[in-house]
Design a protein around this nucleic acid. Structure first.
Lengths: 252, 252
DNA sequence: GTGATAATATGACGAAGCGTCAAAATATGT
DNA sequence: ACATATTTTGACGCTTCGTCATATTATCAC
């Protein structure tokens, strides 16, 4: 009988569907009411299952939140992959990754903040080994993507690696700047009050400059950086940029 | 009578002394057993006061932890100030700030991690307005210190600001890189496994390169960067470096 | 259909932690 | 030595986490 063959799959499908429902609900609650108000009981109530059922999916509250973060990081990776696959120079592709990163943060500021929750010891201490591994695997995937691109750039001769910088060094440099820059931008510290102009633009300029510092061809002195920015946005992230500008219109 | 004059001060002294005791104890517990094991009851037990007394000092667990972080940031600011006051070129002084930052993270890795706790929404949501202000004021102090130095550099003509970068931009760039770089270094992601060499060195090289990119004189091409690193360490942070190497000998 | 069996859902419960507050203890001033 | 002000205490109420025996539902053989 095919009943036997379909039996488990259907159950599994239901299970996975419910898991997404729980995650969606939790994400909404997190966005609307904050982490402090997020309780297993409330989630259960909202999805109209009992607490025990939630615990069939996630072994603890921390595991649930981490699963949420994993989903967010996966979305980020999709954007990165799209940038990576752009048919241009290695420098353009790396710039596209940066734009992907910025866009993600601008489009999903709350998710981007929540990802940080799972990086603190307070939460990590309570995570199950599996979820920790899952998260680390995703982080690794992102890093590897950047690494591959820089290695391509070196192989293609776009970056000369003669001096005291290798692919590691370079990836580390950009990744620090992007990561730190986005965290600064999303922090509650009012950058404008400090005299900073919009963080994304600054970050773009700074990373362009860092690329030049590595001698990453073609140098920005031979390129119209602003035009490049626009070009990449429309070629790769038209839909995202659209959502972004719509969002801005809504709010103000 | 002077009894009247001394009366309140003595009380206040005792109060402040006890507050430090509580913070010291909490810090130790945090280092040894992690955030999850840190409870108000346990702190009270350890300092041999009751829970109510702890709540006379800190209005919530989050406020206590934030106070801890504020103390850590204050220590960091001291190091920064020392670097800022170094009698050298603006570029040397900024490099010294970077070393101060690296040293702090290497000497107090656990504190540096804990500072991150207070940056997540999960904790921020529960913070009192005052403590939040206190923390923001300290952050502002650090930023301002860097900003002042870069402004000095511009005023002295060490950086030309003709193009599309201003003091804001530059501080933002370095601060992103330092902040992001240290976070990456302290994260559980095993950088070595990914092929990264020790993070501090990489960061040093990357920031030197970024300084060059800004045309910050004297350029590293005219300087022995390694020698500069050593010079600044011994001139400003001899004691800290000493502690650091001792610590390494202890552990391995 | 019906009953046996396996899988799943439930929510009452115990444990643990936060923050409060009336009462006890201590200090201060006369 | 007494009255008054201040500080300390820990029992208590409340919330939340995570568990588990029980109830419910689904599956399947006959």
């Amino acid at each position: 009988m095919s009943a036997q063959a379909d039996h488990l799959p259907r159950k599994q499908r239901e299970f996975q569907h419910r898991e997404q429902l729980i995650l969606d609900t939790a994400q909404n609650m997190l966005h609307q009411h904050g982490y402090a108000q997020l309780t297993m009981e409330r989630i259960a109530e909202a999805v109209e299952y009992s607490k025990g059922t939630i615990y069939n999916h996630f072994s603890s509250k921390e595991d649930l939140v981490c699963s949420l973060c994993c989903r967010c990081v996966s979305n980020l990776i999709e954007l990165f992959q799209r940038a990576y696959d752009y048919p241009g120079t290695t420098r353009e592709r790396f710039a596209a990754i940066e734009i992907a990163y910025s866009l993600y943060h601008q489009l999903n500021p709350l998710d981007a903040q929540n990802i940080q929750i799972v990086k603190t010891n307070a939460v990590r201490e309570k995570l199950s080994e599996e979820k920790l591994q899952e998260m680390n695997a995703l982080e690794h995937e992102i890093t590897q993507l950047c690494m591959n691109l820089v290695n391509e750039a070196i192989a293609a001769g776009d970056i000369s690696t003669s001096e005291n910088h290798t692919a590691d060094t370079i990836v580390y440099g950009f990744w620090s700047m992007l990561y730190g820059g986005m965290l600064l931008a999303q922090s509650d510290i009012p950058l404008e009050e400090l005299g900073f102009s919009p963080a994304i633009t600054i970050l773009w300029n700074n990373t362009q400059r860092l690329m030049d510092a590595y001698g990453w061809e073609p140098l920005s002195t031979n390129t119209d950086s602003d035009a490049l920015f626009t070009k990449l946005c429309s070629a790769l992230f038209a839909e995202e940029v659209c959502r972004l500008t719509q969002g801005e219109n809504h709010h103000g």
